[in-house]
Simulated assay, not measured.
Amino acid sequence: MGLFSNPIRTLDDLFVHTLQDIYYVENQIVKNLPTMIGKASDPALREALRAHLLETEGHVARVEQVFGMHGQPVKGKDCPAIDGILTEAEDIMGDCDDAEVCDAAMLAAAQAVEHYEITRYGTLVAYAKQLGRADCAGVLAQNLEEEKAADAKLTSIAESRVNRMAA
């Protein structure tokens, strides 16, 4: 148990812990996406990142809604995993000399973030259902579906243009 953490003894505790994790994650993404948007040279990638920033702001609001529905205070919990993914993305963007290669690197980093979010939201939906909280599961499932759609859009952009241009 972390120094300032509550013990995780029940599935409900784990649900709240994971909810705090994804809340932190979504807020870090809101903070970091504008930098990626500014550095993206490919118009389709830039637009996809811009659209996902708006979606992510909605994800934050939905997670806050679930905290309220579950009777918990809105609170994030540091997530070393997402911090690592975002630090790696920053490092790669700083090392890229070629804009098209940088686009491919940013796209890969964005997909790493999406995949992390997909796993977290999938887990949260499963926990919510197991806890008898279909209401929470329904709200979280909306975020999950949007994350899957964002990942599919990024894959399409990578395969149709960005990776080819970087080669």
Rank of each mutant, 00 (worst) to 15 (best):
M1Q: 11
S5R: 12
S5D: 15
N6I: 13
N6R: 14
I8G: 07
I8M: 11
R9C: 13
R9Y: 14
D13W: 15
D13R: 11
L14G: 12
L19K: 04
L19V: 09
L19Y: 03
L19Q: 01
I22E: 07
I22S: 03
Y23W: 06
Y23A: 07
Y24Q: 03
N32K: 15
L33I: 11
P34T: 13
T35Y: 05
M36R: 12
G38I: 14
K39Q: 04
D42P: 01
P43R: 00
P43S: 00
P43N: 04
R46P: 04
E47T: 07
L49F: 15
L49R: 05
L49A: 14
R50G: 07
H52S: 06
L54D: 08
L54H: 05
E55L: 13
T56R: 07
E57S: 11
E57H: 15
H59T: 01
H59E: 04
V60I: 08
A61R: 02
A61G: 00
V63H: 04
E64W: 00
Q65K: 14
F67C: 00
F67T: 01
F67P: 00
G68N: 10
M69R: 09
P73E: 11
V74S: 03
K77W: 11
D78V: 15
D78S: 13
P80K: 07
L86E: 03
E88M: 10
E88T: 09
A89V: 02
A89E: 00
D91F: 02
I92G: 00
I92N: 03
I92Y: 02
M93T: 13
G94S: 09
D98C: 12
A99F: 05
A110Q: 04
Q111C: 03
Q111A: 04
A112M: 13
A112G: 06
V113D: 00
E114Q: 12
H115W: 06
E117V: 04
E117S: 00
T119W: 01
R120Q: 12
R120W: 10
G122Q: 05
L124H: 08
Y127D: 05
A128D: 05
Q130K: 15
L131A: 10
L131E: 05
D135F: 05
C136Q: 05
A137G: 12
G138N: 14
V139F: 13
A141W: 07
Q142F: 01
L144F: 02
L144Y: 02
E145R: 13
K148S: 06
A150V: 08
D151K: 12
T155E: 02
T155P: 03
S156W: 10
I157W: 08
I157C: 09
A158E: 14
E159I: 14
R161G: 15
R161W: 07
V162R: 15
N163C: 10
N163D: 14
R164K: 15
A167F: 14
